[in-house]
């Protein structure tokens, strides 16, 4: 088994700062922007992007957390129920720019469920998607607006985004089976 470090903590911090700048540039300022992280690793990532934006713009950005398990399209096929967490959307999202934040973009099914879940809270003016790693293999017509790292993978590989908040340290790992 081979675990390859794709991004170090410094790489991740640079990517977060860059994404923060891109979001502000794209939205012509930070006002009207709401960051919504997908449980569980998207939520701390969203908080970090918000901290970065506040750092250079001086404007606080509302941060929410979204649970998508009740909107998954594969629930009847799973043998065990996924854990459900509270969603928390701290502000009215109607007519705002919502940036969904997640750790890995793969098939696009999580992003689809997140769009659906967000719908329950209002109708944003625009929804964008920020991810730390885009590993390809989309199954739905979904593309990210802000990407930390584009990482070509094969389907039998695993990508883990580790965060200090949830895992004790910051790094992105690629795990490839069969290369022992």
């Amino acid at each position: 088994m081979a675990d390859k470090v794709i991004m170090s903590d410094a790489d991740m911090q640079r990517a977060i700062r860059r994404i923060a700048h891109e979001i502000v540039e794209h939205s012509r300022g930070a006002s009207g922007v709401v960051l919504v992280g997908v449980h569980s690793r998207g939520a701390p990532l969203a908080r970090r992007i918000a901290t970065a934006i506040q750092g250079f713009e001086g404007v606080p950005v509302p941060v929410g957390a979204l649970d998508i398990s009740l909107h998954r399209d594969d629930l009847p096929r799973l043998a065990a129920r996924p854990r459900v967490q509270r969603s928390h959307i701290p502000t009215d999202i109607n007519d705002k720019t919502v940036v969904l934040v997640d750790d890995v973009l793969y098939t696009g099914r999580t992003a689809r469920a997140a769009l659906d879940a967000l719908n329950d809270f209002g109708r944003p003016r625009r929804i964008m998607l920020a991810v730390m790693v885009d590993r390809g293999h989309r199954e739905l017509p979904i593309r990210p607006d802000f990407v930390g790292r584009n990482l070509p993978t094969s389907r039998d590989e695993l990508v883990s985004v580790e965060l200090a908040e949830t895992d004790g340290n910051d790094r992105v790992l690629l795990h490839s089976p069969g290369r022992d």
Partner: peptide, 14 residues
């Protein structure tokens, strides 16, 4: 489906 086809579902022991 390969592992991690979607976000980790964190299955409940139920």
């Amino acid at each position: 489906r390969p592992p991690q086809a979607t976000a980790e579902p964190s299955p409940l022991p139920w």
